[in-house]
């Protein structure tokens, strides 16, 4: 294994930790707003780390570009959808959780 391979493994594991934390948050947090908060971390940072891990293994710059595009699109969609879900919940009168 080369240095690049080790770096990939480290980045993938770091990404997996974010996904794991996001999933635990989704399952354990008390209300829709805090769950969304947990979920977007996994989407943005977790996927970002995985994309970087795969990008340094990619064989061509085109593949790197596609991977980055996927990440950007997921961030865009994830952030927007999280906002829309939270907005919908607020409009339906769901109060944010307070201790």
């Amino acid at each position: 294994m080369t240095l690049i391979d080790y770096l990939t493994v480290v980045l993938l594991l770091a990404g997996a930790i974010f996904f794991f934390a996001g999933t635990v948050g989704l399952l354990r947090f008390p209300d829709v707003y805090t769950r969304l908060h947990a979920l977007t971390k996994a989407d943005n940072v977790g996927l970002g780390l995985m994309v970087v891990a795969l990008a340094i293994q990619a064989e061509s710059w085109a593949a790197v570009g596609k991977l980055l595009l996927i990440w950007l699109l997921v961030m865009l969609a994830g952030a927007s959808v999280a906002h829309l879900v939270a907005r919908g919940a607020l409009r339906r009168g769901i109060r944010p959780w307070k201790q």
Partner: peptide, 10 residues
Amino acid sequence: PLVLEALTRL
């Protein structure tokens, strides 16, 4: 919602 509209435009 404005965000949905912006997202759609993109």
